[in-house]
Amino acid sequence: MFVKRIIPLVVLLALFAGFFWFDLDRYLTFQALSDHRDSLLAFVADHYLTALALYFVLYAVSVAASIPGGVLMTVTGGFLFGWWIAGLVTVVSATLGATLVFLVAETALGEPLRRKAGPWLRPLEVGFQKNALNYLLFLRLVPAFPFWLVNIAPAFLGVPLRTYVVGTFVGIIPGTFVFAFLGTGLDSVILEQQQRYADCLTSGATDCTRAFQISSLLTPEVIVAFVALGLIALLPVILDKIRRAKPDGTLR
């Protein structure tokens, strides 16, 4: 029984390790996207549905295996398919991948961890279960928390699967569509970077680079917007605590 529970976890860990072992992370960079711009656009133009299906599967697998690069993939999706299609497909795909890793973590580690933690974890588990949807929305909306961590933490706190799926699906919609929309303007950035790089090489310089980073799209304004959305998601929890508070500041 234990072996059956642990096999899916081993598979995901193998996918994660294999990703770096075979140096596949080099493809999740702006330079790789810039280098393969023409071939990617040509493939999408000639095999649109196949390309969209591949994007869906690769995104789900990357989320399930906790492979980094979600922002770049989402921006690339917006670049290749348009912000509306990419946003919708990414939300469904990311939710599927997150649900898979949630189920694996819950089956392989969730119950044993809760039994071992005992009284230490119980108050946190009860509190999280009571306001699970609001907490999940906050964690999904605010980009300060690693996506992979938010995927597995609820599995250790006994969050119901339905609540997890709804909280994940709704919570990632704003950020996903923002980055997919940013991807629609990426082509002009790539072409500009390519021209600057070519001009640099022509000038005879030896330190020519393409320094653009996808992370630079996460501007302070975007972060503030996500934090504001996260705080809105927590309002019911905050108001409930205020309503239940006694005059002396303790909770009823």
Rank of each mutant, 00 (worst) to 15 (best):
S203L: 04
L33Q: 05
Y164T: 10
A53H: 10
V63C: 08
L201V: 10
D199H: 10
L33Y: 04
M1W: 11
L54C: 14
G118Q: 10
F79E: 03
S215P: 00
L113A: 14
V165G: 07
L239C: 05
A132P: 02
P160M: 09
L33V: 13
E125G: 09
F2Q: 11
K116S: 13
G249P: 06
Q31I: 11
T176V: 11
E125Q: 13
L161V: 12
F147M: 05
T76R: 03
A42P: 00
S203R: 10
Y48C: 00
L88D: 02
P8I: 07
I7R: 09
T74H: 03
D23V: 05
L54E: 09
F177C: 04
R115D: 11
G87C: 08
G82Q: 08
L229M: 14
K130D: 13
T50K: 11
F22M: 12
K116P: 00
L100W: 12
V189C: 04
T184Q: 12
V142P: 03
A14N: 07
L13Y: 08
F128M: 15
T74V: 11
R243C: 06
P68A: 12
F56H: 06
V44W: 05
A98R: 03
P123S: 08
K116I: 06
D46A: 15
Q31S: 10
T29N: 07
N131P: 00
A228W: 03
L235G: 06
P236A: 10
F179A: 04
G69A: 10
I152V: 15
V75N: 01
V71F: 08
L12T: 07
P112L: 11
I67W: 01
G78N: 07
D46I: 02
A198G: 07
V189S: 02
A14Q: 09
A105C: 11
A153D: 04
A245K: 14
Y135I: 05
F177N: 01
G82R: 06
F138G: 03
F81L: 09
R115C: 00
